[in-house]
Simulated assay, not measured.
Amino acid sequence: MVGGVIQVLGELLITVGLILILFVVWQLWWTNLESDKAQADAVDQMKQNFRDSGSLDDSGKGPEDPIIGEAPAHGQGIGIMYIPRFGEAYERPVIQGTGRDVLDTLGVGHYESTAMPGDIGNFAVAGHRQTNGKVFDQIDKLVTGDRIYVRTAQGYYTYVFRNNEIVLPSQTDVIAPVPGYPGEEPQDRIMTLTSCNPRFGSTERIIAYAVFEGWQPNSAGPPPPIADLVGKDQ
């Protein structure tokens, strides 16, 4: 009798172990495959939309005086993010919203209450590290001075990475117009990247800050560091 119970318990533990292994494989492998395909399709669609929209009137607009696009509806595309530090082939869609419908499939999500690319204030985004495309897997590898590029229908916005910090999930003031100082009037153009920390956990958040460096219209072509990736067929 006792031996039979032990055998049943042993079989149950083996079954549970197999289920957990399959779950981990699904999380760390299959969700990335699915998300990579969805994100690549979204990038291709945005590039097509940019071509179809043609060049905007950018007369009188200089590198420090960017055109600011209007925020789209939830789930709609804002632009494409390029971070050379994350690899020469890194290009990910930036989508409006930070719900699971965006982050679990479409990549980088834009906090809807924050600034648009190039605007004064805080252009804040979120992304996963190890699952669902792991768009910010290497966020901890950014080095001061690294460039982050965001391409929209208006043009290319360049930000320069400044520093990162680790905070608790409750510290939402990191996406305030002036990060860390809610209620203060912004004077600068900031980008904030947020993701889970540690790499295989979510008890903390890792925050990366970058400052605006400049802007150029699509008609000027991409900045040299990402020209090959953007391609001649922009």
Rank of each mutant, 00 (worst) to 15 (best):
V135E: 02
D188M: 10
G107A: 04
V143Y: 13
H128W: 11
H110F: 09
K141Q: 12
V150A: 05
N164R: 15
A176E: 07
P224F: 14
D173N: 13
P117L: 03
D104G: 05
E213S: 08
P223Q: 11
A124F: 11
A210L: 08
P225Q: 08
Y209E: 12
Y159V: 05
G231P: 04
L106C: 00
G118C: 03
P222H: 10
P217F: 09
A227V: 10
D119N: 13
V102S: 02
G121F: 09
D173P: 09
M191Y: 07
V230I: 06
I139V: 08
Q187W: 14
P186H: 04
P225I: 06
R129W: 08
E185D: 13
E185Q: 14
N132A: 07
G145S: 06
Q187A: 14
N163Q: 15
P177E: 11
P182K: 11
V108D: 01
H128Q: 01
M116R: 01
F123V: 07
G221S: 05
E213I: 07
Y111Q: 03
N218K: 11
Y149A: 04
D104R: 08
R129F: 06
E185G: 00
T194A: 13
L142G: 02
E213P: 05
S202R: 11
P117I: 01
F123G: 00
P177H: 08
I175V: 10
I148Q: 03
V174T: 06
V102I: 09
F123W: 13
Y111K: 02
W215I: 01
V150R: 07
L106P: 03
P179V: 06
D188F: 12
E184R: 14
